[in-house]
């Protein structure tokens, strides 16, 4: 077939039923089979690495360009570094990243407080809009949360009381 540099003449019947029109990837992909030549294209100019960039171990290098938005840092960064030792095929990659994301939320709050900013979580969650457009729903959610919280507190109080009685 096109772009095939290897000689398959020793394989009887090689390619006799090949039909280039039978390509379910078209028109998404204009097949050139260039990737059969491997990672051999002329790469764009490489972006200088000014911050730590973690890269998948399913590729040999950092891509020519990359985002520098939020380099790994703190405890979440340590977990992310460990995660990138595993392949994208491994839960050992993705689950620690999710854990790191949750730890990063706490780090974000600490960072806010350190810089003198008390995060307004009510505003950040957009409750102003919820209050404006879905007041009934918001009140219902608040009531359910209050009842559940009361139930949990009451349960533990009762448990504590029972313990004291013995």
């Amino acid at each position: 077939m096109e772009n095939t540099t290897k000689d398959y003449s020793h394989i009887k019947g090689w390619g006799i039923d090949a039909d280039p029109k039978n390509d379910p990837t078209y028109p998404m992909k204009r097949r050139t089979n260039e990737e059969h030549l491997g990672y051999s294209w002329e790469r764009p100019t490489l972006q200088p690495q000014t911050v730590e960039i973690l890269h998948s171990n399913e590729r040999p290098n950092v891509t020519a360009v990359f985002g520098t938005s939020t380099p790994p840092s703190g405890l979440s960064g340590m977990i992310r570094r460990l995660a990138f030792k595993k392949t994208e095929n491994d839960y050992g990659h993705w689950l620690p990243l999710i854990l790191a994301d949750r730890i990063n939320v706490v780090e974000g709050i600490i960072e806010d407080l350190r810089s003198g900013h008390v995060p307004n979580i009510f505003a950040e969650k957009g409750y102003k809009a919820e209050w404006k457009y879905n007041r009934g729903g918001l009140l219902r959610k608040a009531a359910v949360a209050a009842i559940l919280s009361y139930g949990v507190v009451a349960y533990f109080r009762a448990k504590k009381k029972r313990k004291h009685n013995y």
Binding site: T32, E34, E35, R43, I53, L54, V62, V65
Partner: peptide
């Protein structure tokens, strides 16, 4: 974000560029 130079961009798979995402190959 697509480089236009890799084997995938050249085949118009601009959503699958191989030179724009170091963190994941997928």
């Amino acid at each position: 974000i697509a480089c236009g130079q890799c084997a995938f961009c050249k085949q118009e798979l601009y959503g699958n560029c191989h030179e724009s995402n170091p963190q994941a190959t997928a």
